[in-house]
């Protein structure tokens, strides 16, 4: 008999060494996630994958699965918590979707749709952050960076380079480039690198490929990030509760 955990009452098998997220993905159970990508080392920073294991909050992308865990995942309360976290990500940056090339293909936006997010709820921080357009084929727009470090990990773990890092502390954290000038053009990144493509939001974009697919026909215009969504979105805001 293989070992199992229980996610929302469903038995899910797992092998030693797997995280709750690994087990859920293998069983086709959707746990919202943003900083996690199979194949890269787990990070545990966005906290969208937060679940309650035997009443305790844990990140499913980093928490090892262990026999008998009772996991709450797809609950109204957790949906509210996750929506709030998404709103926090929106308002700490400058996410002006109508003017963003990633719109429709953006994981953050898709998660926001999935969680019925109508607005950012909190006062906007409107930070001033820099754009780096130095590279011939890539552009960095830090306004949209959510500090998920997927590009950092992809570059180190898959591309065998070390193009990106996160610098600074607290709300001032920001993406930096590992090159003498700090500019992307001076780094050894190439368009084919995973790091060039992995950004879940519109913070690292490939130049000259804008609007090839029209708005309205893009990935998340046609599909929900989890195909389990209810049909109607209530237009009155709900408030999260997390006691």
């Amino acid at each position: 008999m293989s070992k199992t955990i229980k996610i929302d009452g469903v038995d899910v098998p797992f092998e030693d060494g797997q995280t709750i997220m690994d087990a859920a993905l293998a069983a086709d159970i959707y746990i919202p996630h943003l900083c996690h990508k199979p194949g890269l080392s787990p990070h545990g920073s966005c906290k969208l994958c937060t679940v309650d294991v035997d009443g305790r909050a844990v990140s499913s992308c980093t928490m090892p699965a262990s026999e008998g865990q009772q996991i709450a995942n797809n609950t109204p309360a957790l949906k509210e918590v996750r929506k709030t976290i998404i709103q926090m990500l929106f308002i700490e940056g400058n996410h002006l979707c109508p003017s963003c090339e990633k719109t429709g293909d953006c994981t953050l936006q898709a998660l926001a749709y999935h969680h019925d997010m109508l607005d950012g709820h909190f006062p906007q921080f409107y930070p001033r952050r820099n754009v780096d357009a130095s590279h011939p084929t890539l552009i960095i727009d830090r306004d949209r960076c959510i500090l998920c470090e997927l590009c950092v990990r992809a570059s180190r773990e898959v591309d065998g380079k070390n193009v990106f890092a996160i610098a600074g502390r607290g709300i001032k954290r920001q993406l930096i480039v590992n090159s003498p000038s700090g500019k992307l053009a001076d780094s050894d990144i190439e368009t084919e690198d995973l790091a060039s493509h992995i950004c879940p939001v519109g913070a690292i974009l490939i130049k000259d490929h804008g609007y090839e697919v029209p708005i309205g026909r893009r990935t998340f215009d046609l599909h929900s990030i989890a195909e389990t969504d209810l049909e109607q979105v209530i237009l009155k805001k709900t408030v999260h509760h997390d006691a």
Partner: peptide, 18 residues
């Protein structure tokens, strides 16, 4: 706390400022 948050995770990075 807002000043000392390391900024790694969303709830604390954004939440301590809020």
């Amino acid at each position: 706390f807002a000043h000392e948050s390391c900024g790694f995770c969303t709830p604390c990075r954004v939440g301590t400022t809020l």
